[in-house]
Each structure stands twice: as C-alpha cells, then as structure tokens.
C-alpha cells in the first residue's frame, strides 16, 4: 500500500471495528444495559431452603420479570435464608400478602422466585417482608419420601 492516506484510513477503520466488536460483546452478549438495576424497592423474604437460587436470579410474577435478587444471607436467629428481592418501581401495587415461591425454569433450568398475588388492599413497600413463602423443591427429598412411602406400603401387607 503506497498511499499513506489510505493506510491511515484503514488503520482508523480497524481500530473502530475492534472497539465496535468490543461494544457488541459488552452490550449484546453480556447485556451491560441490564447491569445497573432499574429504580425499585427492596423487600425481604425468608425461606427454609433456597436451593440453587443466586444473586441476580430473576423475580417473576405471572412469568413476567418484575425484579431481581440483590442479596442472599442467613438469619442466625430464625435459622432461615433471608433473600432480598428488588422489585421495579413500576410494579408498586403488589398486594402485601403476596406469596413467594422458589421455582425452577424447566427441568434443568435456573431457579427463580415466583410471586403470586394475594388479595390484600395494602401494597408492598420498601423494607416489607413477604411472610408466605415456599421453599425450593429439593429433588433428593422427594425421592427420599417416595422411596419411604414405597417401602412402608410394601411392608404393611406382610405385617
């Protein structure tokens, strides 16, 4: 390449393409746009067992994403896991007696918190606690119970 101007342009284009690729990776692949949580309010929920729930796991209501989990801790007085849910400001009229359950997306999918609306007239506000909770389903427990019921059933006719 003899023309120095053309060379400079191609170098500039190369750097621009490289940075654009990086931007694509950050925005489209890593989804940077969702990184800073939207304005919202935080409520707490206590669970006996949270299974595989993680920080940043989704909080869904009727299958729609309404927030994310911002913190998971352990309450050493109640011996329960305490999960902080951050719900978007636009969903500010969720009834106070809403139930929180831990579900699994699909058979092998990630776990999320599903909210089921109650009938209370007052709404959840920042700092509230969701009292009606249901823990994650632990597969081993179910298998254990199933086997236990099987053995007791097969043992009873003989006795």
């Amino acid at each position: 390449m003899k023309d120095p101007r053309l060379m400079e342009i191609s170098v500039g284009a190369f750097v621009a393409i490289g940075l654009a690729a990086l931007l694509l990776l950050a925005l489209k692949v890593a989804n940077l746009a969702q990184f800073s949580p939207p304005p919202g309010y935080e409520v707490k929920a206590y669970f006996d067992n949270i299974g595989g729930l993680q920080v940043r796991s989704p909080v869904k209501m009727g299958g729609v994403l309404v927030g994310r989990i911002t913190n998971i801790g352990f309450d050493s007085k109640r011996f329960q896991a305490v999960v902080t849910l951050r719900i978007s400001q636009i969903y500010n009229s969720i009834p106070a007696d809403t139930a929180a359950n831990i579900y699994t997306a699909g058979l092998l999918g990630e776990q999320y918190v599903g909210l089921e609306a109650g009938g209370d007239d007052t709404s959840l506000v920042a700092g509230d606690e969701i009292t009606i909770t249901q823990s994650a389903v632990v597969l081993e427990k179910i298998i254990q119970e199933f086997l236990y019921s099987k053995t007791t059933k097969s043992a009873s006719p003989g006795s």
């Binding site: 490289g18 690729a21 692949v29």
Partner: peptide, 15 residues
C-alpha cells in the same frame, strides 16, 4: 494494540 482488537473482532464474529 492490535491483539485485543483482533480478539474482540474474532469473538464478535464467532458469536
């Protein structure tokens, strides 16, 4: 300078 840019392009094009 070139290597990270090339790697970013490679990855983006790969995706």
């Amino acid at each position: 300078i070139s290597m990270p840019l090339l790697a970013a392009i490679f990855t983006a094009v790969g995706v």
